[in-house]
Amino acid sequence: MKTASQYFLQELEQAIGDHPDKVNILAEYELHVHEWMKEEGAESVDNYSKLIERLGSPQEIALLWRQEAAITPKKTQWLFVGLNIAMFLGGVILTIIYNVFSWHWVEQLWHGLTETTFIIMIVYTLFWGLLGYEIGKEFGDGGRRLLHKTFIVSVVPNLLLMYLTLFKLIPYEWFQPLLNVPFIMLCIGFTIVLYPVCLVGFRWGRKLSV
C-alpha cells in the first residue's frame, strides 16, 4: 500500500507533465514531504489530507509551475514592446484620420487630447515605470539586462517619430498646434527621463520579488 508521500509525489509527477524543470520541482517537493513527515511523526505518514493541507494539492502546485513557466523574458519583452507599438500606431492612425477625414467625433477627440498632452505624458511615463516594475518583480536582479533590451527596442518608434517630425520628413502641419519650442523641449525632457523611471520601477519590483 502506498504511503501518503508516495501517492502525493506520484500525483505531482503526473500533474506536472512535461514541464522543463520537472526533475528539480519533484526533488524540491520530495524534500518538503520528508520535512513534513519528520514534523508529523511516523504515525501520520498515511494522512494524505494533512499533507495536501500543508503543501497544496498536486494539481494546484502543477498549475502554479505552469503559470510561472509561461512568464518568460522573451514574452515579457514583446508584451511591452507590442503595447508601445500599439499606442504608437494608434496615435499615427488617429493623426491620419483627423487630417484626412472631417469626422466630428475625431475632431473632438483630437482637441481633447491636444489639451491634455501633459497628463498623457505623465500616464505614458508611468507606463514605463510599470515596465520596470514588472520585470523587476518577475526576474529580480537577473532582469536588468532584459529591462535594458526591452527599453531600447520599445523606444525606437518614439525616437523615429521625433526624428521624422523635427526634420519635417512627414507633414509638419499635421501636428499643429503642438509643434512649438516649449512642447518639443518637453517631449525631449520626458524621453530622457523614461529610462530612469524604468529603473525606479525595476528596483521597486525587485524588492517585492525578494
Rank of each mutant, 00 (worst) to 15 (best):
V106M: 09
V92R: 01
F101A: 11
D141F: 03
W103R: 09
L94W: 03
G129M: 08
Y98C: 04
F118A: 14
Q176M: 13
P171T: 11
G136I: 01
R144C: 01
Y133E: 03
I152H: 01
Q176Y: 13
W128T: 05
W174G: 08
V123I: 15
T150R: 00
L126E: 03
F118W: 12
E134N: 07
V181P: 00
V155I: 14
T117W: 09
G129S: 05
Y172D: 08
E134I: 14
W103L: 15
L179C: 06
G129Y: 00
G91D: 08
H111M: 13
K137Q: 06
L126D: 02
L109D: 07
F175W: 13
Y124C: 01
G91H: 10
L146T: 08
V92N: 04
I122N: 06
L178P: 08
M162E: 07
L126Q: 03
F139I: 04
L179M: 15
L164V: 07
L169V: 00
P171I: 12
I152L: 07
I97G: 00
L169H: 09
L109W: 13
T117C: 02
E134G: 02
R144F: 14
V155Y: 02
E134H: 06
L131G: 02
F183L: 01
V123T: 10
V156G: 00
F118G: 00
L178C: 02
I122R: 06
L147N: 02
T125K: 01
Y163W: 14
F167T: 15
T117P: 00
K168R: 15
T125C: 11
V100L: 07
M121V: 02
V100I: 14
G136T: 03
T117L: 11
G136V: 02
V106L: 04
H111T: 14
Y98L: 06
E134M: 10
S102R: 13
P182T: 05
L130K: 05
W110R: 13
L161T: 08
I135P: 06
G136C: 03
L109V: 14
G143W: 01
I170D: 05
H111W: 15
H148K: 11
F167I: 08
I97K: 07
L130F: 12
Q176P: 00
I96L: 10
T117F: 09
L94F: 09
N99V: 03
W110Q: 12
V92Q: 07
I170C: 07
F127L: 09
K137V: 01
I97M: 10
L164E: 09
F139M: 01
V92Y: 10
G112A: 12
